[in-house]
Design a binder for these strands. Structure first.
Lengths: 141, 141
DNA sequence: ATGTAAACGATAATCATTCTCATGTAAAGC
DNA sequence: GCTTTACATGAGAATGATTATCGTTTACAT
């Protein structure tokens, strides 16, 4: 479980819901979690929590720089722990598996494209969608 | 106004709501329209239409390949006429202005990154977010 | 230990989008 | 041009994710 200091450092009071949620990201197997995932996991562990708290805490964690919020091509958001450097994502449309990649040349060219148009980039999102055919989608649900 | 044949060619019955909506994209000044934009514009012109129809028609147009649906970093979808080639987008976080760009090297590297991970790309989305500082955001609303 | 501001959980509210269904209409045939 | 009929429409209800409200609880500085 994450320590209270992890939260204090981020400027957040160390409450039980926050510790539980942060632990899911730090100890859990899945790197990308939705509010629903988190709510159901904690309820399943017998911990009493509400959706309001889950969403509140996720937003606070995002603002504190602990998590990144992703908007994949569907309706709900998923969150990911900010560890390691920036990376982009590719999602299998068949099984939902998410893989990560990073290409410095793509990053550089994004900045250049923005500059040409007179923009200063503050944020960007790059998502690829496809089929993991080579592996015949072993993660198919 | 767009012609009935534009719709027939796409395999759709030429109805008034569909002609009106297609016209907004073909004749309008804005290239990126939300369902709300379309509904309000048509109602403002005295044309009687409902949200259900707007959403239905947009989905049909997307499936027929006439429009592309974009999910910017907020909650609602915007649509864009499929004309000219593929391009990516950059949006000003201050004024909402959207500009377009295309970099073949970025496109190529996306495909390569996907291949390395055993994926075949079916779709992708690249959005940059920033401030159009150089121009002092002349489009500020 | 205790006071207080912050955080909590339940529940209602919101917002974009989709569904349902009774009515309207495009276009094919007479 | 006038029926026919399947498909399209508009109004409003329903949905699903997320956010706001509010009375209660809790972290933690005093």
């Amino acid at each position: 479980m994450s320590t209270p200091d992890d939260l204090k450092t981020a400027g957040l009071k160390a409450t039980m819901p926050r510790l539980k949620i942060l632990s899911l990201f730090e100890q859990g197997e899945a790197r990308h979690l939705s509010a629903d995932d988190i709510y159901n996991t904690l309820i399943g562990e017998g911990f009493d929590i509400g959706f309001a708290t889950v969403y509140r805490v996720l937003t606070q964690f995002e603002q504190a720089g602990l998590l990144t919020r992703h908007h994949f091509e569907n309706d709900r958001s998923v969150f990911e722990l900010n560890q390691g450097g920036h990376h982009d994502h590719i999602m299998c449309l068949q099984c939902g598996r998410v893989e990560e990649f990073y290409d410095p040349e793509i990053e550089k060219r994004q900045v250049e494209a923005a500059e040409k148009l007179g923009f200063t980039i503050r944020d960007h999102s790059l998502y690829l969608y496809g089929d993991c055919t080579r592996t015949r989608c072993p993660h198919r649900k």
